[in-house]
Amino acid sequence: MINARDLPIKKILIGLVLFFALIFPILFGAQLYYLTVLILILIFIIYSSAWNFLTFSGQGSLGHAAFFGLGGYFCSLLVMKAGIPPLLTLPIGGLFTGVIGVLIGLTCVRLREWFLAMVTFGFAIIIQTLIVSQLAPITNGWDGFGVTKLVPSDFPNSLLIEYYLIFAISVITLLLFRYLLKSKIGLTLAAIRENELEAKASGINPIPFKLFSFGVSAFFAGVAGALEIFHFGYITPEIFGVDISFWPIIYTITGGLGTLAGPVIGTIVISLLWEGLNSFGLTYMRFVIIGILLILTIIFLPGGLVSIGGKLSKYWNKSPDSDKK
């Protein structure tokens, strides 16, 4: 009823958030600490969104670090061995991880959720083992190697430029996901997710679509991994760690599984909460709090943080009605 008035408000708010992200460094100063935290948040927004995209097709992964790390390694090797500038390697590295993603997806599409989770988890371990053993002559094994940074650090304000670059990449990524989800593909994916049998009955072959979402998800996870390494300036096999696989899950679920805004909100809120708890001197307690938060979210707020507003407004809208009666 009040659509006409509210629609621009939503856009204005998104615009405001973007604007805030843009001027943040100017407001608070281009401080190393803020920028480091913000850059890592942006990278994990891309990564969590990529992970989330897979769940749009009803699949879930416990080993996305495989793609995150592969992207990191492939791009780093392109930069260091072939001399390609970091920024240009991102699409190539993404494509490479995307192809690997489709290949891994081929073994997974027929599998049930648990099998899928296991297989993806296993791939992260297998790829890490390959990197440190058979591929060690190229990857330098556990020692890793130094990588050119996204913006060379002798550049004036290099970190600030890096921040804006990564910011731009994450906005483009989110827009792409938005586009994909609004397109026919997105609708088909939703159909498969909701009921694969019915989707099949209406003439949809789910396999190419599932593979497609695997590929896209791996592509952006790879880009995020490469960005992290170009930010660190050094790559080690720790990039395949279990924690790297788990963080996007935690971020996305607390934010809101299966929504575009979920991974973004989740990453921001959990990262900042994490930093906040850290400054209170909580170490193990932080993990306990995050774990409890995750369980509570799944049980009591399956839609994640993005659904809170809706729930609250439902509550508010209801109570005046009941008063009238």
């Binding site: 939503k10 708010l13 909100i265 900042l272 909460l273 906040g276 809706g310 508010w316």
Partner: peptide
């Protein structure tokens, strides 16, 4: 739409609180 508006407002508030905490 109203719901969306409120949820965005809420989230903005949440992010601000988180920023302040951290």
């Amino acid at each position: 739409m109203r719901n969306e508006f409120k949820s965005i407002l809420f989230l903005t508030a949440l992010i601000i609180v988180a920023v302040i905490i951290s």
